[in-house]
């Protein structure tokens, strides 16, 4: 399968690209390219610079680096067509960290800026009662079993780095949460659109399993 990582020009995408490649090297049924397929790895990752680079992709990853305003602008300027295909459910998407926040209606990071509005809700600053950024390994509680949370254990740790967090209007989109001063959606799912507030590509084996879950959901 082909996965397009949307390059919003905000930072290095090597880690996320490698994270997807490593997850794709699993032997899980949906990704197994099978003997004789000629492919050593089941997943080909394309770093897309513009819409047409993502045309042939089976899934899209919106990476997690940079500021909300710049990310939202770059997404709409460079990937307007891809965003519409994500919105319509034509192509599955995983937003990582900032990439997950961009799926929401608006953010208050450095002002007030509109996001993609695929998931209704706001992105707001962490409370002043905790050290910001929320940085390090925190555990999650699974609220709903879905393609993304399959096999994820309650109490499993993932690597978080963020100063803002998502507040979805519909509670049901939060499929796993963590806590840092307030309950924080750690994973969201709405149809074929998924998000992780943590960095799965920096979360060792636990993160690899979550990326693999997404890839399997995308090929299904």
């Amino acid at each position: 399968m082909r996965v397009a990582v949307l390059d919003m020009g905000l930072g290095n995408l090597l880690s996320i690209r490698r994270g997807i490649e490593r997850a794709g090297q699993g032997t899980a049924a949906g990704l197994d390219t099978g003997p004789g397929s000629g492919a050593r790895a089941g997943v080909e990752v394309i770093v897309a610079q513009r819409d047409r680079d993502a045309d042939g992709a089976d899934a899209v990853v919106i990476p997690g680096v940079g500021a909300f305003r710049d990310g939202a602008r770059a997404l709409l300027e460079r990937f307007g067509g891809t965003v519409e295909r994500i919105r319509s459910g034509e192509i599955p998407a995983l937003g990582v960290c900032l990439g997950m926040q961009l799926l929401f209606t608006r953010s208050f990071e450095g002002g007030e800026y509109p996001g993609l509005g695929i998931i209704r809700g706001d992105v707001v600053r962490l409370p002043p009662t905790v050290k910001v950024p929320h940085m390090g390994w925190n555990s999650v509680r699974v609220l709903r079993r879905c393609a993304l949370t399959r096999g994820v254990q309650d109490g499993e740790h993932f690597y978080f780095v963020h100063s803002y967090y998502c507040r979805p209007e519909e509670e049901s989109v939060t499929v796993a949460e963590t806590e840092y001063g307030v309950p924080i959606p750690a994973m969201v799912a709405k149809g074929t659109v998924f998000g992780t507030q943590f960095h799965p590509e920096k979360s060792g084996e636990a993160g690899r399993a979550v990326i693999r879950n997404f890839l399997e959901a995308a090929v299904r």
Partner: peptide
């Protein structure tokens, strides 16, 4: 390191300028 490691890493020492910061971060 960025290619192989799946946990975060920091690089220090000899980072003197914005250009150095950028190079190190852009390398992963």
């Amino acid at each position: 390191t960025a290619y192989e490691l799946s946990i975060p890493f920091t690089v220090g020492g000899g980072v003197r300028s914005y250009a150095d910061v950028r190079r190190v971060l852009m390398a992963g």
